[in-house]
Design a protein around this nucleic acid. Sequence first.
DNA 1: TATACATATGAACATAATTACATATATAAT
DNA 2: ATTATATATGTAATTATGTTCATATGTATA
Lengths: 99, 99
Amino acid sequence: MELNPTILENASNLFKAVSEPSRLTIVYLLSFGELNVNTLAEKLDRHQSAVSHQLKILKAARIVKSRKEGKSRLYSLADEHIYEIVDQVFTHVQEKESL
Amino acid sequence: MELNPTILENASNLFKAVSEPSRLTIVYLLSFGELNVNTLAEKLDRHQSAVSHQLKILKAARIVKSRKEGKSRLYSLADEHIYEIVDQVFTHVQEKESL
DNA sequence: TATACATATGAACATAATTACATATATAAT
DNA sequence: ATTATATATGTAATTATGTTCATATGTATA
């Protein structure tokens, strides 16, 4: 595996995007299905504005996508592969925890 | 998959640890074998002190381990699984890049 | 023990990231 | 068109992070 500057940058951006607890929780919650900003804000106990900013970051990292539905906007994971990666890390830390 | 506070914290710490380009590069370099701080500092074009600080973070996240060898200390990946995770993301962003 | 070499640490500085607040934009329904 | 609802954005303040510099610690060998 070669590590050129673009791959390095994109990979660290992806890692950074899911390194923030709120954003990682968003990814987890969206793995069960699409949700709007307000529902996410309630579940995360954060302001709508904060979650909206976080979603923008996740969208820029191509981790989530969204679609309009009536007057709200539904967010979902952009790619199943993302959840595989996250789930792999969840499993990893869970194993390490039980040592 | 359940997301309790401990898993969430450990997982985001792991993601955060490899989200910094220098640290991600360290993981990449160590995937080929063990290296000491000075060699890493040269390859990364950073001061020895900066790399030492980064290694401390990687060690706290249980991503690298080290052993004494003469008067130097050799660092290596704490776990093969770590590189699998990183490599999976490298592959992912490489695929996304070529869209 | 004195010296040289390798690594680690603490403090200070600069930069970046996150949040809250206020407000703007967009859409649907009356 | 007006109102209500949902979401996005700009800005400012707080907090976190990474780097450098100086120095301390550790270790091997003369």
